[in-house]
């Protein structure tokens, strides 16, 4: 009898004590507003920097002479699991050797199908494409997500086979 009464009151005491322990934790945070972790996104756009390996979208690297390294070998197209990349190639005459060779006409990239798995980048033998660190991909029309990666008038760099 005495034991059960004792247990009754010790239960109450321990229960209330455990509640206060929890309140102490949350109370700590309410009194330390310096530890707030929220980032105010559109405002901090200028200072927001993605990590260099972040996979935002596939881009074809162009240098200042508007030249890229894509030979149109379509290794990336084969490596892609989702049919995200479509390479429409064209025939051209190699100026040095005079032989016909394959060049890209359009490098189509369907951003809406991309799972950002990085397999195309690994597959590329000439390192012509890379992942860009962009992250704001929303558009008003779905067709805007289908992109042509080679810039108009661009051509392949010298010496890339």
């Amino acid at each position: 009898m005495i034991g059960s009464i004792k247990k009754y009151f010790s239960d109450i005491y321990n229960g209330v004590k455990s509640l206060f322990t929890g309140m102490k934790v949350t109370g700590h945070y309410v009194t330390h507003p310096g530890e707030i972790i929220t980032q105010q996104y559109p405002e901090n756009r200028d200072t927001l920097k993605m990590f260099e390996r972040f996979r935002g979208e596939v881009v074809l690297i162009h240098d200042e002479n508007n030249e890229h390294k894509c030979t149109g070998c379509s290794a990336c197209e084969l490596a892609c699991p989702n049919g995200t990349i479509e390479i429409i190639s064209d025939k051209a005459i190699d100026e040095e050797t005079g032989k016909p060779k394959k060049i890209i006409d359009t490098f189509v990239y369907h951003l809406q199908m991309c799972t950002f798995c990085n397999l195309c980048i690994l597959a590329c033998p000439t390192d012509a494409i890379k992942m860009a660190q962009t992250y704001e991909h929303s558009v008003f029309d779905r067709s805007e997500l289908t992109k042509v990666l080679n810039k108009p008038g661009s051509k392949i760099m010298q010496g890339i086979k």
Binding site: N14, G15, V16, S18, L19, T21, G22
Partner: peptide, 9 residues
């Protein structure tokens, strides 16, 4: 632990 494990509720 303080928030949940020990909490009586």
């Amino acid at each position: 632990d303080k928030l949940l494990t020990g909490n009586v509720i």
